[in-house]
Design a protein around this nucleic acid. Structure first.
Lengths: 233, 233
DNA sequence: CTCCTATTTATGTATGCACATAATAGCCAA
DNA sequence: TTGGCTATTATGTGCATACATAAATAGGAG
């Protein structure tokens, strides 16, 4: 008899998910601990641990030392969004990418930017605006603020040949940030730049990044009409 | 001397990320294999493997058996989006959640839905519309199609006490799906339901899920003005 | 009864080893 | 040259073991 076939962590993960969905383990309920599951499945605890770690990453269970593992009360779905550099996103669709720098100046930030970046209102930041194009058509309008004291090199960078978007990704590591999606009616200026009607519904992303507690940059991208962000679950 | 302190996989992950960002390992370049790194860091290959697996999950490196590990050409950022059930999202903000079923009927799906769900145009699906409210204010308009042959139980479900959103999350497991975000100008009907002006810019999510190759449901959520989706990087 | 401490316990991680698997590279034959 | 077989090699995974760490609990001092 082939007594050798080991249990894979994937099969344990699947069985755990099955039990949760079949309500054998109900939301909020404590599930058996790793050692017991290892015995039940006839494998090492390491393997159970690996499986449960994956399930925990997906948000279906919550684990705490000593307290044990319980089924999450509210099954929160988690989706991974891929956020490529705009140039790559456009070129992947087989279109020609272009970027035009529209303005560049050291300016005092408006209150909204101050709040988001935690910056002093009397301290000038580098303010850039530009247009990303795909096959010559307007794709997205970029409005960016850069903390020059945190990124001195940005003052020298030439943003006419490389977009600030890409320059920052290539040159400035960051430890975290946040990202917001929303919808917004095109202003007069946005409509002109994106060649659409004023008031048209546009997709907007706002992102800011920080490093070592310092805010680095804050950017708002207003996309041309019809833009969609897509992801798999 | 304390010769005991082991190297943690986190510290290896951080060092790997540092080298990538410092351009010691350039995009597209092959990095040393696990055994070498294990020797360099003075730890077990398992530990290096764990670290590299994490980095690979974040999208910074690509790994293939036998071929080795290389730094990703285009540093694609990955963000994890949390997609809670609407009720939970609203209640977490301390607001009172409500749902009103607006319509329920077995209908022939329009071409768009047929395409997304891979459903036959002559096969009726369960079509539901309803309004999610927060503190009595319109929050999102739901327009859902359910494949009743894949989910027979949906035909009996009472969607006036529990929203289809939540009923499906609780009762129907799925293996995958996709999710799209976009902006959309409010139609007459949407404006009436959401109590906003027609043409106003609204945030829209479209989601469809499948299981075992069969499409289960397709839903379109149109949010009231001002809605934002937020995530951390 | 309250507060603090020590113990217990479940998860988290590191290690050495073995073997599985995918994919390249090299070889040989037609 | 071409086709296909084989050996090689880097990653992927499983296991037994050991110890680390967080956190709940029990026990003891006041």
């Amino acid at each position: 008899m082939t007594e050798s076939s080991a249990i894979s962590w994937q099969s344990i993960r699947d069985e755990v998910l099955r039990r949760i969905r079949a309500r054998e383990w109900r939301p909020g309920q404590l599930i058996p601990h790793e050692a017991d599951l290892a015995t039940e499945f006839g494998c090492a605890r390491t393997t159970v641990n690996r499986a449960l770690r994956e399930v925990a990453d997906s948000g279906m269970i919550e684990r705490r030392r000593r307290a044990g593992t319980r089924v999450a009360l509210h099954p929160v779905r988690r989706a991974t969004l891929e956020i490529p550099v705009l140039r790559v996103e456009i070129e992947r669709r087989g279109q020609a990418y272009g970027f035009t720098l529209l303005s560049r100046a050291a300016e005092l930030p408006p209150p909204g930017i101050c709040a988001r970046m935690g910056s002093a209102p009397d301290r000038p930041l580098l303010h850039l605006t530009g247009l990303h194009t795909a096959d010559g058509q307007p794709h997205a309008l970029e409005d960016r603020w850069i903390a020059t004291d945190a990124i001195p090199a940005a003052a020298q960078a030439d943003f006419t040949t490389i977009s600030p978007n890409e320059w920052l990704v290539l040159n400035v590591p960051f430890e975290g940030g946040d990202l917001t999606f929303s919808a917004h009616a095109a202003s007069e200026g946005e409509a002109r730049a994106l060649r659409c009607a004023p008031g048209e519904a546009l997709f907007v992303t706002e992102r800011s990044t920080f490093q070592a507690g310092r805010s680095l940059t804050s950017v708002r991208l207003v996309f041309a009409p019809g833009h969609r962000v897509h992801t798999r679950l």
